[in-house]
Simulated scan of single mutants.
Amino acid sequence: MSQIVYVSGTFDLFHSNHLKMINYAKGLGDILIVGVSTDELVCSYKNPPAVPFEERIAIVEGLAAPDVVIPQHTLEHRGTVNKLNIDSFVIGDDWEGKYDYLKEEGVKVFYFPYGVGTSSTNLKKKIYEQYRALIKQSDEHPIPDPEGKGNE
């Protein structure tokens, strides 16, 4: 019987750790289902994603690993696990412990270690800091002398 794996995420500003987690999940079974959180779901617990849902799900659908990609409308996964006969559930380790309740449903739960480095949150911070530096640089400049004096 096929082992069905479900991996869950927002997948905002898609980066290499997202890809590593999806590929890791693919290696745990025969069929990989990826749930991409809708904008409404993400906004229920944190700031809106930078990339709209339609684009995020299209990016994940374009990957080789997923067999099926579906919208994810809730953080409560009992229904999804039971409807889709999920054997294993994978999510980033920033959610450590939050999905242990799925073990009661007979599901193996894996918290993928993102480790240090790339995350959507870190990417957003870096982009913001670079943007602020650019604005500061463009706003802080000497005011030219309209008569051309002192520019010699």
Rank of each mutant, 00 (worst) to 15 (best):
M1A: 02
M1G: 15
V5P: 02
V7N: 13
V7A: 04
V7T: 06
S8R: 09
F11Y: 01
L13Q: 07
S16F: 12
N17C: 13
H18P: 12
L19S: 15
K26S: 10
L28M: 07
I33R: 13
G35N: 07
S37Y: 05
D39Y: 09
Y45S: 08
Y45V: 08
Y45D: 05
V51L: 03
E54I: 05
E54N: 03
R56N: 09
I57T: 04
V60F: 04
V60P: 03
V60A: 02
L63N: 11
A64I: 09
D67S: 05
V69W: 02
I70L: 09
I70W: 06
Q72W: 09
H73R: 04
E76M: 02
H77D: 13
N82C: 15
K83C: 01
L84I: 14
L84V: 00
L84K: 12
I86K: 00
S88W: 06
S88V: 01
I91S: 02
D93S: 11
W95I: 00
E96C: 01
G97W: 07
D100N: 08
Y101Q: 12
Y101K: 12
Y101P: 06
K103N: 11
G106Y: 05
G106F: 04
Y111P: 10
V116A: 07
V116L: 11
V116E: 14
S119L: 08
T121W: 15
T121A: 12
T121I: 11
K124D: 12
Y128E: 15
E129N: 12
E129M: 12
I135R: 15
S138E: 11
D145C: 11
D145E: 12
E147F: 04
G148F: 13
K149C: 04
